[in-house]
Design a protein around this nucleic acid. Structure first.
Lengths: 201, 201
DNA sequence: GTCTATAGGCAGATAGAC
DNA sequence: GTCTATCTGCCTATAGAC
């Protein structure tokens, strides 16, 4: 899902570095100076490409969302059953975490109250699109009998997003991708179980 | 679970204001100046009580964890069944969210990479204690047949923490506590279902 | 497009009077 | 304990040369 490393245009290289910094340290935890130092340019030259931090931030979210939505479309194209589609969805998160990164929009959700308006709106759009895609997958899975949940598909979609974002969030302090995988596995099995399983250890 | 409002000692009042600011804006999103302004004192006087931001931050986590662990002990004391204990646990999170706050340690987990070492260690301890408590509740629920999950109780505990932290994280941009409640409800029902439920809409 | 230079502000922190 | 005053450093941002 990620592009190449620092071989694109100036704008692309700026976005690549800034994206990694935000996913590592947060929007309030990085500066133009950090980006400039890594690219061996000056802060002033960054302002030529992005008027201010708000514009840079908005561009980051837009690009990230575009790539994420493209990855969702690719999963759809594979025409997997619902369980496998959810596994593929969780794998998108796992890839980000393996790069020692938090989901860009999960990070920005934490900092939401301090973000410029245009970034806030872009963060909302990311989650809306994730939910819509998941709702469709979950509804289809339930209608075919491969998934099971009591509440609406929209509500179940919110659990999936919540659990995966939260699993990334809590796995990072431990530097342990297995923690994420464990939570994802329990989540998927809890939406899959048919009832014919052991009820105690 | 929260104490009174600004009626304690100077230290307590500082912690109260700083706690709210961190839960609202993040550790990198607030300053000594913010706290001082709200309390109508100067930044210098804050340094008398807390040598630096790192010490203030560590004290915040320690107090928050102590209160949270006390709330967990209170739930235990009520001797509820596992399902009700999990509902009470989720309600602790809901109370925080109703105050328009993120879980202190969830917020700090996002900013983890930028925190001073003593704060990082304190954040880890918070999650460890939550997991241990949940593991015990989940194991008991499974042995009594009121809960159902395939994997280890420790792994299921990680899902519970992940889902609730993630549900808080993603509900805040929408300013919508119902979003949290929906995710929590689906989570609990997915750990409770006995198998005799509808499998499609 | 990228640079040097600089503005203006806010950060965390300290010294020393009261 | 709280204050005034100040330090140093970093922040975002801009002007203008090249």
């Amino acid at each position: 899902m990620q592009g190449g490393r620092s071989n694109g245009s100036a704008v692309t290289r700026i976005l690549d570095v800034a994206e990694r910094l935000v996913q590592h340290r947060g929007f309030n935890g990085f500066s133009y100076a950090d980006v400039a130092a890594e690219l061996n340019v000056t802060k002033a030259s960054l302002h030529y490409h992005f008027a201010g931090k708000a514009e840079l931030g908005e561009a980051l979210i837009t690009r990230y969302t575009r790539r994420f939505v493209a990855a969702l479309a690719e999963i759809q194209r594979l025409d997997l059953d619902a369980r496998a589609a959810l596994e593929a969805y969780a794998e998108l998160y796992a890839e980000v975490l393996r790069g020692r990164r938090m989901c860009l929009c999960g990070m920005l959700a934490a900092e939401y109250q301090t973000l410029p308006k245009q970034m806030q709106d872009a963060v909302i759009r990311f989650f809306d699109q994730n939910e819509a895609w998941l709702e469709s997958v979950l509804e289809q899975g339930r209608s075919k009998g491969t998934l099971r949940f009591r509440e609406s598909a929209r509500e179940a979609a919110r659990l999936v997003v919540s659990a995966l974002e939260g699993a990334m969030l809590t796995a990072r302090p431990y530097g342990d991708v297995d923690r994420f995988q464990a939570a994802a596995t329990v989540l998927l099995s809890s939406l899959t179980d048919t009832g014919a399983v052991a009820t105690h250890s």
